[in-house]
Design a protein around this nucleic acid. Structure first.
Lengths: 339, 339
DNA sequence: TTGAAAGCGCTAACAC
DNA sequence: GTGTTAGCGCTTTCAA
């Protein structure tokens, strides 16, 4: 049988109200009584039932996190940071990975409402775009204290990385190295901003954007290096000349490099390659990857701060905020002067 | 104001018990009444309070997971698999990463008790070893339905990978390729089994185990490729001859390969390198890594099965089970015939 | 400073 | 079939 507050009260010879008082510290209890209660608690190894407390206090001290997956180290790191910081504030984290299923995504949010989580961090960028689903989801999310990471959903607080600027910087770096014919391999969604940055940099420098030099995959394919591999191959076979390629993420870049090596083309001597995200392996790869870093730790931390504030002042000012983090170019071996 | 079962009852013109009945399906309700109630539920957008339900049912439909971290893809994948499978059974997952802190580990388990999670998956191998802490922890864990992954804690159900066998296979593979002087770079804990496998294979083939050819780091260092890098360097500088090295994990192997390359030593032509874990990058690296795969998906899935059974039959037979998964050698480019 | 009692939102006997 | 009622384990008035 579970030990309840009643057992403790009996053991200490006081009422349950008193036990509750020493448990919650707030109200003062005579030192002596307090001691007796504490002894009883210790003796019986009593653990107050969080569930019962939640029901009354109307707070579960739990927040929900939705991410597309955890096998991507980008999200895994985010989850870790968020959990860690939340824990310091007494919150637990329920983690849900959608695996790109819009149905699951919706079901997760629903379960968050049912479970009465105090807030949610929504980091499921990839699904946004299919309008019907979006609207419904956004509405559910709005009824909960929510901060979204990456997709900046209108009406919600959000923390995002400046992909447009990061991509622009990367491509301008290539241009600065003397490259003129620069290819792009990427995907939709997040990568849309990155592709835009590519176009932006090219236009800034009055360089033509050649559609033949652009390879685009969908969300499922771009998560694998084989997409980069095959895109590079088809780029090579197209006969179009280029001396550099900007990739929508590091995995694509690695695949592209592999393809280049298979064709005995040197990186960066013959062709420069830039990735995005700065995953762990980027620094370890051979050649090490020039890439753009999203400050995930900072973003996760900021998201928690925002969320906590939202939770603590439920009717603080209602205009949604958005924090934008710069994305930083990290120069390594895979990019060099144009041949 | 939150909509409660009472509001629904009023709206539908029935008692709360009836609403509860249609909610829980079990008891039969007249078709017509049921319809009225369902309409009311829909109209008011009523979501039954999970917290209140938990209190009565004495189950939270929540399980807790403890891992050392999520930035390691090994654990991230595990978390993902576990969350996914649990969700199919109506459970949510609270994820906690210890970051190697024994205090946190204990606090997490305590919070699980307080939150009345229905079960816990304990995957925090690295901390085991410091006796006092262990005993206390093991006792707390035993009071909850728990399955442990990787550390096989006596008295608990567990799912483990056969690191001894995997390591033995890896080293025997090297021996089969004609290598005689084989080095080992690894860490403690999990790696202990791996080091044992190394010794085992050497002894099986009557090869001497030279302590000069063994480099050992601690849990914190071995998570970084720089440990492999520097260990390899010191191995090289020791002047001892060797033609192959077996590494305690893939990151170490990658670091070692980098060091070799920096010294213009070819892998595998001059020296063969084998890693462990088969992380994503292993197949992508250049040269691609020969390594040993732990079947994380299967292990996570098995853990959930075990846990669910534990939860569903609390007083099923009490003798703890242990499922051991074979670890499989994956041959790639980084290992080849001895020079 | 303490106790009695009224719930929080729900489920589960137990009646009708 | 359906309603009444008694809790689940706690916090919180309100009195004493």
């Amino acid at each position: 049988m579970k030990i309840t507050i009643k057992d403790v009260a009996t053991e200490a010879g006081v009422s349950i109200a008193t036990v509750s008082r020493v448990l919650n510290k707030k109200n003062r209890v005579k030192q002596e009584t307090k001691l007796r209660v504490q002894q009883a608690i210790h003796k019986l190894n009593f653990q107050p039932d969080h569930t019962a407390r939640s029901m009354i206090m109307k707070e579960t001290r739990t927040v929900g996190l939705i991410v597309p997956n955890l096998s991507n180290e980008y999200w895994a790191l985010l989850a870790e940071v968020i959990q860690d910081k939340l824990w310091e504030h007494g919150y637990s984290l329920i983690v849900c990975s959608t695996n790109k299923s819009a149905d699951k995504e919706m079901a997760f949010v629903k379960s968050f409402t049912v479970r009465r989580v105090d807030g949610v961090v929504f980091g499921s960028s990839t699904l946004f775009g299919s309008s019907r689903h979006d609207e419904q989801l956004a509405n559910m999310l709005k009824s909960l204290p929510t901060v979204s990471i990456d997709p900046s959903i209108s009406g919600l607080n959000s923390v995002v990385g400046d992909n447009l600027q990061g991509a622009t910087d990367a491509v301008e770096h290539l241009i600065g190295l003397g490259h003129r014919r620069i290819a792009y391999i990427g995907g939709p969604t997040v990568s849309k901003q990155r592709e835009l940055g590519y176009r932006n940099a090219m236009m800034n420098h009055e360089l033509p954007v050649l559609e033949e030099l652009i390879k685009r995959g969908d969300d499922n394919t771009i998560a694998f290096s084989s997409f980069g591999y095959h895109s590079m191959l088809s780029l090579l076979e197209s006969g179009e000349k280029f001396t550099a390629v900007f990739c929508g993420n590091d995995l694509i870049a690695i695949g592209a490099i592999r393809a280049l090596e298979d064709r005995r083309i040197q990186v960066p001597a013959d062709i420069s390659v830039i990735g995005y995200d700065d995953i762990n392996i980027a620094a370890l790869y051979k050649p090490s990857l020039t890439t753009v870093r999203q400050p995930m730790r900072e973003m996760g931390s900021a998201a928690v701060d925002m969320l906590l504030e939202l939770i603590q002042c439920p009717d603080g000012n209602n205009v949604p905020k958005k924090i934008v983090y710069q994305n930083q170019l990290v120069q390594r071996e895979s990019s060099g002067p144009a041949r």
